[in-house]
Structure formats: C-alpha cells, structure tokens
C-alpha cells in the first residue's frame, strides 16, 4: 500500500460509511437499545424498562401471536409455493417453446410496477360492488358466494395472500437465466442417452439451478419481512388483526407513538429474518449431501 493513497482511500469510503452509519448502524443500535425502554409521547414517558417490553409482547399482547403466526405462514407460503410456481414456469420456458420470450417479459410486469399500484388494483378487483370477483360470481349466478373479500373474517387472509402469491416473475426470470446459461451440450448428451424431458429437468437441470433457487427462496423470505404496502393499502391489516404482519404492527405501534414497543417488534423482525435465513441455508445444505 502506498502511504500517499491513504487520504484517497478514506475519502472514497467516506460517503458509503456515512450513509451506512446514518440509516443502518445508528438505527440498528437504537432499535436494540430502545427495545429495553418505555419510550412514548402520549403520555410522555422515557424510562428504562428492562425486558418489560418483551414480557409484555410475548405474554400479554393479545394480538402478537396471531400477527407473528401470519408473518410466518406468509413466509412459508412465499418461500415454498410461490417460488415453486416461478421455478416451474422457468423450467417450461428454458426449453424455448414458442412465445417464451413474450411470456417472460409479460410475467415480469407485475413485479416491475410499484407494489402500491398492484395493491390499489386488487383493492378494486375485490370491491364488493363492481369488483371482478363478485361480478364473475354474479354472471354465473352464484350470488350466494359473493363476499366483501378483503374485509370479512373468513376471506381476508387468502384474499390478501393472492395479491402477491401468483406474481413470481422475479423467480422465473432468475431461475430461467440460470437454466439458459447451462451448457446445452449436457442436455443434448442426456437426450441422446434416451432421457425423457422430465428426467433431464429433474436430474440434470434442477441440480445445476439449485443454487439460484436457494437465492430466490432467500429473496422471497426477505420480501415477506419487508411486506407492507400490499397490506396497508388493501385490507389495512384487518378485520381485527387477521391480516396484520410484523412490519404493519410495527408501523401502527409507531404511529401511536409507542416507540419503545415498536423497537421491540423491530428486534423480533430482525431475529425472525436471521433465523429464517439460517434455516433456508440449512435446508439447501443438507439436500446437497
């Protein structure tokens, strides 16, 4: 290393480190530290609370476990079924059937436009008066089955889930790119050996695409832990807390200016994220052996 380069190195690292400190490091310390305080504006209080917030969250908060369960269920649905759907389509497309490029581009569109727009579209599609779902039921004479989908106890959770469940464009694009980058010679060789296309998919392509699938599973889990606008703009988390997840709960807690408690929920989100990532890597690791 050259001595005279040191100022330049510091200068070049400075902006990145400053942004990191401001938006990640300091807030992370505040979340962890703040989770041990009773800090709220109404009524104005600021006092050390030990693990009081955690005790309250885990044992007294009536909503917490339902919200926690919602978050986990959504992570599992997303990591397993949503990714499976996207992967399945990628395995269809990599054989380049007619129109594969068109499908790849079109299927990506819902992932490119903002999630809040998708949320608004679904809010209207689920509308009990003029929405698509109820209109179809009316058209086929099944008015009995009409619901106010997003706002009834029994239908809200699946209705909200469907606003993102089918849009696996990211997964398809990534897995497809991986499949297309494979050496075609391997596939040709397998064909000559008389392998059926399903056998090739399962025994040749899948193992080579597995690392990318693992990546998409992790991205799916991360996405679910960031999920906010899709719920906030559709069901708003209700009825009751039936469609609330941890980020939305953190937001509403924060809005009621109960900052200490919001931070406790933040810590839970971080821990869930770490554990999920660990488990996903574990699952894919043991499969390899």
């Amino acid at each position: 290393m050259r001595k005279k380069e040191i100022p330049w190195i510091i200068l070049f690292l400075l902006p990145t480190c400053a942004v990191f400190l401001l938006i990640f490091a300091v807030p992370l310390c505040m979340v962890i530290g703040g989770s041990f305080f009773n800090y709220r504006l109404m009524p104005k209080t600021f006092s050390f609370n030990g693990i009081g917030n955690y005790i309250q969250l885990f044992t007294q908060d009536k909503n917490f476990w339902l919200i926690f369960r919602n978050t986990l269920v959504w992570i599992v649905i997303h990591c397993v079924f949503h990714v499976a759907l996207g992967t399945l389509l990628a395995f269809v497309l990599y054989k380049k059937p007619r129109g594969w490029k068109f499908v790849r581009v079109v299927y990506m569109i819902p992932n490119i436009i903002s999630q809040s727009a998708i949320a608004m579209i679904f809010l209207n599609m689920y509308n009990p008066q003029y929405g698509v779902l109820n209109s179809i039921l009316k058209a086929v004479g099944l008015e009995k089955l009409q619901h106010n989908w997003l706002f009834e106890m029994g239908t809200a959770f699946p209705a909200v889930t469907m606003t993102w469940f089918l849009f696996a464009g990211y997964t398809t694009t990534l897995v497809l790119a991986q499949c297309l980058s494979l050496d075609e010679g391997i596939i040709e060789a397998a064909k000559i050996d008389g392998a059926s296309s399903l056998q090739i998919d399962r025994l040749v392509v899948f193992p080579l695409a597995k690392d990318m699938i693992r990546t998409t599973v992790i991205m799916a889990a991360t996405y679910m832990l960031q999920l906010f606008s899709m719920i906030y703009l559709t069901s708003g988390g209700g009825p009751g807390s039936t469609t609330t997840n941890l980020p939305l709960y953190l937001y509403t807690t924060m809005k009621s200016t109960n900052y200490g408690y919001a931070n406790t929920i933040g810590v839970v989100i971080i821990v869930v994220g770490m554990v999920t990532m660990f488990l996903i890597n574990r699952v894919f690791h043991t499969r390899e052996e």
């Binding site: 505040m30 703040g34 832990l225 980020p247 933040g266 971080i270 994220g273």
Partner: peptide, 21 residues
C-alpha cells in the same frame, strides 16, 4: 463485513429509529 450487515437487516425493523434520525 460490517457493511455487509446491511444485507441481512430487514429495513422495516428500522422504521422508527430512521424516522427519529
């Protein structure tokens, strides 16, 4: 390694302190 931490923190967890900062 420290900067890479930003990859594993769900940013929704940081809503409240980012607002404060």
């Amino acid at each position: 390694w420290i900067l890479s931490l930003s990859m594993v923190i769900p940013t929704t967890a940081l809503l409240s302190p980012v607002f404060t900062v």
